[in-house]
Design a protein around this nucleic acid. Structure first.
Lengths: 236, 236
DNA sequence: TAAAGGTTCGAACGTTCGTTCGGTATCTTT
DNA sequence: AAAGATACCGAACGAACGTTCGAACCTTTA
């Protein structure tokens, strides 16, 4: 139900030529490999997220990660082939988890407005529960280059299109006129900006914020446009 | 009138112990010093903005700036005492210019809604005309530490409060109920996110975007809140 | 228990970094 | 033309960087 911090769930990717494979022997295996390697990997990725979040990708050093995890500098390279792959694994896992969870939740509703509210809530809940990973995703948006950069960009595009389609459904079902692209990007701005200001001691939780931002955004796109004196169409 | 790129206007700060001073001799002097030093300084800051924008502050090197400007590595330090001061000067100048221009434009109107639209338009126009400097301001938001960091943070806070007050005026004059803090930060998200997506070949210009975003945001805060069936109060 | 393979390490490699220093051109003022 | 200030540079410093290598340790398998 809740998108709590997935502290130990950062694992399972193809790393260093190593494949994600069901245990070849007869041992029990859950959906996700849970070998010593995988657990240590998840721990390293969590620490790396925190460090990248705090000092930025370029400002963080492998020595920082070595110090934080207690593992030697050389030992780290048993798990990643480079610092760049470290960032790639964090971004890919974060984005994939966000999309996967969103898809599950969207399956529970067919009402266009409610589905947009589900999107906002899901995004904010994940953002607040995984602040560091989320900041790394947003802040290092165009840090990765070439293959790995293209792969993460493709996932990002998929996320964009999910949101775009939600808005188009809403727009059609309410007979509205607004630019889908501008609406998506405005909404993304609102919900992705949160990591620059949210303070859990003074600001509301994800559910409250999602309702408030949903109100602002949905009312905004509903009544926006040239005409200033439109009536509300719903439940006349 | 227009906030065109201030390519040569990055100058005039206190640098390296050097003071901004009216010419001590009898020569003509404009508002801004225009010595050889100042002109070269402005050129260096412009190049530095572009480099910081492209590679990030940590990823950019003084050698990059040396290469881009044609000045030797050592020569650069005649203008800045450190790389950090370079970032400081860029951020301070950018923020100061934004606020100064905004203040001038706000003086031209007393209508609360129009003033918010002026704010949005002024911000977007500057953002699109000075993409690189703006990205450096947003992206390296918490890069500076200690004194210089606090100084830029204070300017940022001032900008926040200007917007906050605009929204409170609007809220009062229309008898609305919404959280000023959340509204400001949502609006900031919308307008600051633009540097991640705006493409001048496919997206509208600042004036159009300001109108569209203004519509979304203002309608949003006007009709948001628990009550869903409010009438429009303006011009009944 | 011994071999095998997965895991970790100290030490170093070559490179790049921000910054400094002593000195030389260039300009301005006398 | 001398003198002083300003502008600039080649060369180098020490520190930090990402990464590699061979050897050691530990766990699992035979």
């Amino acid at each position: 139900m809740s998108l709590a911090a997935t502290e130990t769930a950062l694992s399972g990717a193809t790393v260093h030529g190593r494949k994600k494979i069901a245990h070849p022997d007869g041992r029990k295996s859950h959906e996700v490999n849970d070998t010593r390697f995988d657990r240590r990997m998840a721990d390293l990725l969590t620490h790396a997220s925190n460090i990248f979040c705090e000092k930025g990708y370029q400002g963080a050093s492998m020595r920082d990660l070595s110090r934080a995890t207690g593992m030697s500098l050389a030992g780290l390279y048993h798990y990643f082939e480079s610092k760049e792959e470290l960032l790639y694994l964090i971004q890919k896992h974060t984005f994939t988890t966000i999309i996967e969870t969103l898809r599950q939740r969207l399956a529970g509703s067919t009402d266009p407005e409610e589905r947009i509210r589900i999107f906002i809530h899901s995004h904010l809940e994940y953002s607040l529960a995984n602040k560091q990973a989320m900041k790394v995703l947003v802040h290092e948006d165009d840090t990765l280059k070439n293959g790995r950069g293209a792969e993460v960009a493709a996932i990002k595009k998929e996320y964009y299109h999910i949101c775009f389609n939600l808005l188009e459904d809403f727009r059609r079902s309410h007979g509205l006129e607004f630019s889908g692209r501008l609406a998506v990007l405005s909404l993304f701005g609102m919900i992705n900006w949160i990591h620059t200001w949210h303070n859990p001691r003074v600001d509301a939780d994800a559910t409250t914020l999602a309702r408030q931002m949903g109100d602002i955004f949905l009312r905004g796109v509903t009544h926006s446009g040239k005409a200033r004196n439109k009536i509300n169409k719903k439940k006349p």
